[in-house]
């Protein structure tokens, strides 16, 4: 029979994902109750809630890539970014809300990587939602303990003479790594450079792409 998945594999050979036919958790129920009360009392509207979700979904690593490319090409902007990354991001027109952002820069001698051991702090208001692995217990616990091994699993192999700086986002700051500008990019303009900046390179688990 076509819907009798007795072997639990789709025609493409992948397992079927179980339907989420489970009761709401306590906190899921609480969220719905509070949201409905706020709407009933006229404190917010369903459209406002949807609008906030759209605003967050529209944020993406491409925003950070533009900040990095500007820093690579404009020394004055670079200086302002290192001094106050929130102000520099706002200067580029990004609506980052109350985000307190610190930029840390990779060089020939230093490689930075960002983690939040306590939860999943991430510069969402600039880069959008974090990748799932960033929130995993393995990434959070291992990055402070054995960062070089974690980085090597991401394909980033660092020589001993490069110092690794791990940044644990334990409180109010959020972090963006400014990856090293790849060699051979002297003739590229800001837009082309932004295309080389990956999400992972701004977390520190990757490098900027070669042109």
């Amino acid at each position: 029979m076509p819907h009798d998945h007795h072997d639990h594999l789709s025609p493409s050979g992948h397992p079927y994902r179980a339907d989420d036919d489970t009761p709401l958790s306590y906190w899921q129920t609480m969220e719905i109750a509070v949201r409905e009360l706020l709407i009933d009392k006229g404190i917010t509207t369903a459209a406002d809630v949807a609008q906030q979700i759209d605003t967050m979904d529209a944020r993406s690593p491409a925003n950070g890539a533009r900040v990095v490319a500007r820093a690579w090409t404009d020394p004055d902007f670079h200086a302002r970014l290192m001094q106050d990354a929130s102000a520099a991001s706002r200067e580029m027109g990004f609506d980052i809300g109350p985000l307190h952002l610190i930029a840390v820069e990779n060089t020939a001698k230093v490689h930075n990587v960002i983690v939040c051991t306590l939860c999943s702090c991430y510069p969402r208001n600039l880069l959008g939602l974090p990748p799932d692995w960033y929130k995993s217990r393995a990434y959070r616990s291992r990055t402070v303990r054995e960062p070089r091994r974690v980085l090597s699993e991401f394909g980033v192999h660092l020589p001993d003479e490069v110092q690794v700086r791990v940044h644990d986002s334990t409180a109010d700051m959020r972090y963006i790594v400014i990856p090293a500008r790849p060699a051979g990019t002297e003739d590229l303009d800001e837009d082309a450079l932004a295309g080389l900046v990956t999400r992972d390179s701004m977390i520190g688990t990757g490098l900027a792409r070669d042109p």
Partner: peptide, 18 residues
């Protein structure tokens, strides 16, 4: 932070502490 178990003793870790 990790004593003799450190992967590379000269690497650093920054955290925000009140």
């Amino acid at each position: 932070v990790w004593g003799s178990d450190a992967e590379n003793p000269d690497d650093t870790l920054d955290a925000e502490i009140y």
